[in-house]
Structures are given as structure tokens and as C-alpha cells.
Simulated scan of single mutants.
Amino acid sequence: MPDPSSPAPIRVAVVNDHEVVVAGVAAMLAGDDRVRVVELASRVPVLSEVDVVLYDLYARARVAEQQAGRLISSLSVPVVLFGWQLDDVLVEEALSAGARGCVPKSATAAELVDVLTRVHAGEVVVRLEAVAEESADDHGEERALPGSRQLQWPGKAEGLSARESEIIALITQGLTNEDIAARAHLSINSVKTYIRTSYRKMGVERRSQAVLWGVQHGFAPEAARRIG
């Protein structure tokens, strides 16, 4: 039975372009009575009355020129950004746009909830520690970032790492290798390595096959909302 003296849980909306991504973040938060996910929104405005919006940066590079910047400026509640690559430039863009928090996906569920709680209390919280680029070894295989087992992303069941998944999502959206390198702040050789290892896991050889595979496996952005 809930303790009537305990504070009410913080109401959180999780937002991203991909329904499977927001569902994975919501699952990560489940079980902590300090927060309650009341809405999952992909490519649609947040409708519920919430205290904090958690914006997942999956397959997104910067803030200023993308949906995250528009979302932050349009909401009257604090926004926390959640992503693999939180460098100084992205954080500066986010805070300038009005974000109140930035937290890496290497954070544990408890650490993420702690950030949401502090932001809700009025703090600006930026965590950058333990964020490292996934690296390919001599065999082209990637090591997942610490804590990545807590999250879900398109293609995870088929063996794609989080970074490979984001690259395939960008390919599915029609970006060239040069576009992906610029957007994800990677070298063109790194992009090609991620594509090569991803294609092997996906069982495809050509870009057209990769796009079709991506559409069939949830990589195309979709509009969806779940409330409650």
C-alpha cells in the first residue's frame, strides 16, 4: 500500500521518433516509484499533463537544427536529453535552447531517475562521464557501451549495437555516408566500418536491401502515442 506521506511520483513523457525506442526507455524507468511514465510519444506532440519530458536522441546528431530544439522551446515543462554522444557542443546547444538536463545512456536507471528528480526540483543537471564512442576491434565487431543492456533499440534483437542501429536508421531515412558522417560527427571511415559490420549482421549486401530491411524492422520513424 502506498505511503500517503511519500511525494507523488514525477510524471514523465518519453519522446522520440521511434516507438520501440521510447518503449525501451519507459521499460528502463519502470519499477522506480519516484517517477511514473504517463505518455510515450513518437513524432506527435505531448498531450498529457507532465512534470518532465525525457527526449531520447536516438539517430539524432545535434539539437539546434532538429526536432529537439523546437520541442524544448515549445514546452512549459523542463526537458532532459538522453543520448549516447553528449559532447560539449551538443550540451551547449541544448542548454541554449532551454533544456534543463543532459544524461548519457551509459547511466543506470537509478542515475537517470536521479537526474529527472533533480531537474523537476529546479536544478540544471549535466552528466557527461562514462560516455565513450563504441569502438570496432580488428574483427569489426563492436563492444556495447556500459549499461546498454538496459535499453532497447531497433535491430537489437538481430545483434546490432546501439551505434550500428543509429547508422542504419539514418540510412533508412535516405542519408548518404557523407551526410551520416557530418550528422553523427564521425569520420567517413568509421561510418563505413559501422555499415560493413551492420550489413553482415543483417544479411544484406547493398544499400537498397539495407533500406528495405530497415523499414521492415522498425527503423523508419513512425507516429504513435501511448498514454497511461
Rank of each mutant, 00 (worst) to 15 (best):
V46M: 01
L75Q: 15
L170F: 09
T193V: 08
E129K: 08
E141R: 06
P154M: 10
R196M: 05
A184W: 10
R127V: 12
E49Y: 11
I168K: 12
L47V: 04
D138M: 13
V211N: 09
L47Q: 06
L71D: 09
A130F: 11
V89L: 13
D51E: 00
E129R: 05
S96V: 12
R200A: 08
I72S: 01
K201M: 01
K201F: 02
L75R: 13
A224Q: 08
M1W: 08
L170H: 03
E141A: 04
P104R: 02
A107H: 11
P146A: 07
E92D: 15
D33H: 05
Q85H: 13
L90A: 02
A26R: 06
Y55S: 10
E141S: 09
A136T: 14
K201E: 01
P2D: 03
G101Q: 08
V14I: 04
P2S: 03
S6F: 11
G159Y: 11
I195G: 07
V126T: 02
A224S: 14
F219M: 09
A41D: 09
Q173Y: 06
G228F: 01
H217W: 09
L128N: 03
Q209A: 06
Q152Y: 13
R118C: 09
P78R: 01
Y55G: 11
L95C: 06
L40S: 02
V103Y: 10
V125S: 00
S198H: 02
Q85Y: 14
R149N: 15
V52M: 01
E19H: 14
W213D: 02
Q85W: 12
E222R: 13
G155F: 03
I10R: 01
Q152W: 10
E134S: 00
E141D: 08
A181E: 14
S5D: 14
A121R: 03
D56F: 05
V77N: 04
A121M: 02
C102S: 09
V38Q: 00
R206P: 15
L71M: 07
S5Q: 13
R207L: 13
V44D: 04
F82M: 04
Q152K: 10
S6D: 10
C102H: 12
I188A: 13
F219Q: 05
L90N: 04
K156I: 00
D51R: 01
E123G: 01
P9M: 02
